[in-house]
Nucleic acid binder design. Structure first.
Lengths: 333, 333
DNA sequence: CTGTTAGCGCATTCAG
DNA sequence: CTGAATGCGCTAACAG
């Protein structure tokens, strides 16, 4: 009903060619003579023609759109990761549509429906734990989906990410190697994140008899980290280190410690998880775990496009992460 | 060519009705008897039917998709703002597609083309300064667009946002009222942002004869703020306050000051811009300017949808912001 | 290498 | 209140 912008037919008319030929050059088909291609391109330019994506999608049954649902946009880990996905998709002519779940299964489901309604051909989900309603929906509609931010070989469906449990274990071992025996562990809500659950379990598994861990669950925000720090300080003044399963929590810990007059790392050591950009700037610089956000995004995007185009099956990939030693952990030895 | 998921025809067949009726039900038309509506809804449920967005868009020439281009996703001001836009759009059945420009005009243009290629019906642009190529493109294709994060009554096209210049001026006046006469001003690249330019100008305009401002341009990151702080400290040790045109820069300033052994606010006062979530947690809590990110998002979304549906013209709106007094500015009086 | 012909799935006249 | 018919803009065989 609205104004009509140049359709493929206008270009056809302008060039005296058929719509099929226009379509061919628009899609980079080989079977077009250089001269006609040239002519078509010029006409497109002149008419300011842009193919109608809806018509194209309708005809090909390919929206070239893939969906990602992340818990939050506020942490730059996700920002980096999403940027990487988008970049890879873009390079091959796909688009990313994003939704935020706020860690709520029902919001995730609603977003998924919406994304499906936008024509998403595949889904990138964060974590491996999702409602069966969502998973069933995707299966029923035959929409490929992959789990990220986790690498879990035991999972039935492919996971692309890192070994949260193992990394948390490594972190505990690292602190232990520095002589810390009493450690406060700050983490987000376990009900909200299977990655948090894995980290907590990994930490527990790594704790030997002579080291005691004290877990504090809080909101995954700076405020949460700060509040939990104060409680931990009161309840376990003997703890010499704080392991934070997110840099954001670590930032809150720094603030809480500062307010309590504790020096990092002299009085209390702090270790993070994520390697956010400010972690190298904070005083003292934060020892943390560098998560391979960009690599993860690239891998995910590539696998999905290969699946869509070449029917190559999705498969699990473990990305490696490392502890970045900086100045926030004191060596007690 | 791919598998076919339930089309409107399947529902029609299942219910023994015509596709027109199914369509009516799906679009909430009044002219359907309750019983048929019920029957159709059940069939949709049973067949797991979801209207094909491409077909719908092709037929109506309405993608119900609107685009927003923001400079970065890494600052939660934008996250809040985008969340608000999305929420409002969602409530009326529209979708948001997002692109990041990284403050680069050419990336913005590329994104815009892509978004157009995805069928975006309207654009939300950040700031009022954009390449004429982009603006021409939008005008030529008759795509409505609005500028945000700025309120500039002198602008030819509508702007929805706050008075960057005025707010910066207020900030300077505020610091002056607290007795600060020598002030370091930290800001991002002026070439990248007209909002930064406006803030710088506003600050200059507000500076009376007896107060001197020293401007430092840096990267809009924590690291940039920290680095600039160190330079400023060296070049203007007499300055008693730092006005940061972004909380992120203020965070860097805290770190830089801390490393230099300066206490906030005892030795140096710090004032921010944005009111990010951690600004209340940091020690001392940051005095900053609360930008109306959510209100802005809601306003933008509403105006655009009203334009699309009711042809109501876009118009400029100034959103008010306030200085939030916390503990990072010392009263020298 | 290029044109012809059919739909893709839906919304929308216009009848009834 | 409901159905039949038409076309949105494009791609994909199929001819030639």
């Amino acid at each position: 009903m609205e104004k009509n912008f140049g359709s493929i037919r206008d270009v056809a008319r302008e060039t005296g060619l058929s719509t099929a030929t226009i379509s061919r050059v628009m899609n980079g088909s080989e079977n077009v003579s250089p001269s006609t291609r040239q002519k078509v391109l010029e006409a497109c330019e002149k008419l300011d023609y842009l193919p109608n994506p809806a018509a194209r999608a309708l005809s090909t049954k390919q929206s070239r759109t893939i969906a990602a649902i992340i818990p939050t946009i506020e942490h730059s880990v996700f920002a980096k990761y999403i940027a990487a996905i988008e970049k890879s998709l873009d390079a091959r002519g796909y688009s990313l549509v994003l939704a935020i779940s706020n860690n709520k299964p029902d919001e995730e489901l609603i977003s998924a429906r919406k994304l499906l309604g936008m024509g998403a051909q595949a889904f990138v989900l964060t974590g491996a734990k999702h409602t069966s309603t969502l998973l069933d929906l995707l299966v029923r509609r035959d929409v490929p989906h992959i789990f990220t931010s986790v690498w879990n070989p035991g999972n039935i469906k492919p996971t692309i990410g890192y070994d949260n449990s193992g990394l948390a274990g490594k972190a505990v071992e690292y602190l232990a190697s520095k002589g810390h025996r009493n450690i406060t562990v700050l983490h987000g809500k376990t009900v909200e994140s299977d990655r948090t659950v894995a980290r907590v379990e990994g930490a527990k598994a790594a704790a030997s008899d002579d080291i005691s861990l004290h877990f504090y669950e809080t909101d995954l925000h700076v405020a949460g980290g700060k509040a939990a720090t104060k409680i931990a300080l009161r309840e376990h003044p003997e703890n010499t280190a704080m392991l934070c399963f997110s840099d954001v929590l670590a930032l809150g810990a720094y603030f809480g410690l500062s307010e309590a007059g504790k020096d990092v790392p002299k009085n209390v050591s702090v270790m993070g998880f994520d390697n956010l950009d400010w972690s190298t700037e904070i005083v003292p610089p934060l020892t943390t775990i560098d998560l391979p956000a960009s690599e993860m995004g690239a891998e995910v995007a590539t696998q999905i496009m290969d699946l869509l185009e070449k029917k190559r099956e999705l498969y699990s990939v473990e990305l490696s992460s490392d502890i970045i030693e900086r100045g926030s952990v004191q060596d007690l030895n």
